[in-house]
């Protein structure tokens, strides 16, 4: 059983890892790359079923445990089903009632909710800046001062133009240097982790050692 549960999946990782590496290095395999890549969306597509199942199960359990919160779980269910059904039926009959419902749910529910949650960042970024301001460590002070200069630099006019120049310098020299150093390190980290996975040293994705 150990073979089917551990060894074979590991072997598959090794084989596919080597294949993936080879397809990047050997141009002649480019053709197979596209074919192999055609599997990825298929696999992704099926994984959505796990998500839906988990969400459903989670809310069912929650409804049992917290009856006072039941109504919210029901809202999640109904919205999931309505959105999915409207979209799937609407797809086959263009311009019908379901298409309209799906479009409206998308434009007047999904999009505004998304934009609003995103816009909460206006408040959160301010509170984060404020807290960094209160911390007296030199590191946070530095972060804040540089942030302040660049922020002013973006809206600078008149006598504040000096911030414009200063922020240009900050963006062009220290920022580029720091980000580049980080990127190189991250690139190496990604490579090392990928190699560990292919060599079978790293197995966390299979659940454990």
């Amino acid at each position: 059983m150990n073979f089917w549960k551990r060894r074979l999946p590991l072997a598959l990782t090794v084989i596919y890892g080597l294949a993936g590496f080879a397809m990047q290095i050997i141009p002649a395999l480019n053709g197979y790359r596209d074919i192999q890549n055609s599997w990825m969306p298929i696999l992704f597509g099926f994984s959505i079923a796990i998500g839906v199942a988990s969400l459903t199960k989670y809310h069912f359990t929650k409804m049992r445990r917290q009856p006072e919160e039941r109504v919210y779980s029901i809202i999640t269910f109904i919205s999931l089903v309505v959105m999915a059904v409207a979209g799937l039926i609407g797809m086959s009959q263009d311009g019908g009632v379901f298409t309209k419902l799906f479009d409206n749910l998308f434009s007047y529910v999904y999009v505004p909710l998304q934009a609003t949650i995103f816009s909460l960042l206006a408040f959160y970024i301010t509170s984060a800046a404020y807290r960094a301001f209160k911390v007296s460590e030199w590191i946070s002070t530095l972060l804040l001062v540089s942030g302040f200069i660049v922020m002013l630099g973006r809206v600078a006019f008149g006598p504040l133009m000096v911030f414009g120049k200063l922020s240009e310098w900050i963006m062009a020299v220290p920022t580029v240097a720091a980000m580049r150093g980080l990127l190189i390190g991250i690139g190496l980290g990604i490579m090392a982790t990928a190699i560990k996975i292919i060599l079978g040293i790293e197995r966390s994705y299979l659940g454990g050692e």
Binding site: A49, I50, G51, L206, G207
Partner: peptide, 10 residues
């Protein structure tokens, strides 16, 4: 969803 499955096992 896939990360979910792996996280459960982990």
């Amino acid at each position: 969803p896939v990360v979910l499955g792996v996280a459960q096992e982990v």
